Deep mutational scan, measured.
Amino acid sequence: MQNSHSGVNQLGGVFVNGRPLPDSTRQKIVELAHSGARPCDISRILQVSNGCVSKILGRYYETGSIRPRAIGGSKPRVATPEVVSKIAQYKRECPSIFAWEIRDRLLSEGVCTNDNIPSVSSINRVLRNLASEKQQMGADGMYDKLRMLNGQTGSWGTRPGWYPGTSVPGQPTQDGCQQQEGGGENTNSISSNGEDSDEAQMRLQLKRKLQRNRTSFTQEQIEALEKEFERTHYPDVFARERLAAKIDLPEARIQVWFSNRRAKWRREEKLRNQRRQASNTPSHIPISSSFSTSVYQPIPQPTTPVSSFTSGSMLGRTDTALTNTYSALPPMPSFTMANNLPMQPPVPSQTSSYSCMLPTSPSVNGRSYDTYTPPHMQTHMNSQPMGTSGTTSTGLISPGVSVPVQVPGSEPDMSQYWPRLQ
């Protein structure tokens, strides 16, 4: 039975679970980093996980050691009161100082060594604690504590007292930064006198190289990059290397530039699409467009005044059976039934097929058609009795279509119309 579990990581490298990497692998990681390889490249070359490479390099940059820390136990506290007071002093002298600059000053002034120097995250935590204590304490208590930490007896009751030896409130920041720059020169002199001055200088240079600022491109470089971006948004590694040799930039910087440029292009394309949609959409909808001609068919113009009344309900007709019959029939052209047409008796099958359309009241044959006459024609229609054979009435077949029909004066039988409509 094995005491430890061995495995293979996602890159194909072998590791022992819970145990640190061998010293030979750690040394190779540092050597590759000094030669300029990126952590992701080191991870692929040595088949070590990216997190492990970053952790080893980060500890090497901070402490200069590649040895693993002790497994188990607690780390001794490195942010001692003396170190905290120095950090507060540096922050007062130059409020814009960075944590890694404070760390360098602690090393250069001999406050800490490589073994007990606090990390950048520890210094940031100390600065946050100082800021929170400043908010919790009152103004007087804060000034007393700062005077105690600074070891001075001057008056701290006013704002300019934060910067000793100065009279203009805006000047101390520059003086403090100048003092810090002077301390940086002392850093070089002190570290050069040490035993491991060369190694420390190499480590600091490598650290500065990794902690780079934003790349500033010249106009020629920007023009070359934009020209390549117009050709393709995704250049391959050969195109990037050719462009890197042409404009004297690292291939990694060119790759990052193209990634950022593609993101910018997507944002601009989104804005262009929004403007295009806004320009195509009308600002207001016309009133006429809300009524579609496919839904509402136009009603033909009436030929006679009587045809303006298109349904039985508008003429005072309360018989719903006839109203439904007229509205359900398709529109037909106007025609006239003459008196000489043969009077065919209704076929029983045809009569039964339209039995649902006729009223059940037996008085329908005896009703006159003056009910369908509009009010303004009552006088004219009353002067001509319906009993004469020459009287013409208008029957409504569908809305908007008038059918003048000659009705025999002897017997106005409704059943004569249905064979004609089939």
Rank of each mutant, 00 (worst) to 15 (best):
N3M: 12
N3F: 11
S4W: 10
S4F: 09
H5L: 09
H5G: 13
H5M: 10
S6K: 15
S6H: 15
V8A: 01
N9F: 01
Q10R: 13
L11A: 06
G12Q: 03
G13Y: 00
G13L: 02
V14Y: 14
V14C: 08
F15P: 02
N17F: 15
G18Q: 02
R19F: 03
R19I: 05
P20T: 01
P20L: 01
L21D: 00
L21A: 05
P22V: 06
P22M: 05
D23K: 07
S24F: 10
R26Y: 01
Q27F: 11
Q27Y: 13
K28S: 08
I29G: 03
V30K: 07
V30N: 02
E31C: 07
A33T: 07
H34Q: 11
G36H: 06
A37S: 09
A37F: 15
R38V: 02
R38M: 02
D41H: 08
D41W: 04
D41A: 07
I42W: 01
I42R: 01
S43A: 08
S43E: 00
Q47K: 15
Q47C: 15
V48M: 01
S49L: 01
N50W: 01
N50G: 07
N50T: 08
K55S: 06
I56G: 04
R59G: 03
Y60G: 03
Y60P: 03
Y61D: 06
E62S: 14
E62Q: 14
I66P: 04
I66M: 05
P68T: 00
P68S: 03
P68L: 00
R69N: 11
R69S: 04
A70L: 07
A70D: 07
A70S: 11
G72M: 06
G72C: 06
G73Q: 03
G73A: 05
S74A: 08
S74E: 01
K75A: 05
P76S: 03
P76T: 05
A79R: 05
P81W: 06
E82W: 12
E82H: 13
V83H: 04
S85K: 13
K86L: 07
I87A: 07
Q89M: 10
Y90T: 12
E93L: 10
E93C: 09
E93K: 09
I97Q: 15
F98E: 04
A99W: 00
E101G: 07
E101M: 15
E101A: 10
I102K: 00
I102G: 05
R103G: 06
R103M: 04
D104M: 10
R105C: 09
L106G: 00
L107S: 14
S108R: 11
G110C: 12
V111Q: 09
T113D: 11
T113S: 13
N114I: 09
N114D: 09
N114R: 12
N116Y: 09
S119G: 01
S119V: 02
V120E: 07
S121C: 04
S122K: 10
I123E: 00
I123L: 03
I123R: 01
I123G: 04
N124Q: 11
R125G: 04
V126Q: 06
V126H: 04
V126R: 04
R128S: 05
R128K: 08
L130C: 10
L130E: 11
S132W: 10
E133H: 12
K134R: 11
K134G: 14
Q135Y: 12
M137H: 11
G138F: 13
G141P: 15
G141R: 12
M142D: 11
M142A: 11
Y143N: 12
D144A: 10
K145Q: 11
M148Y: 13
L149D: 15
L149V: 13
N150T: 11
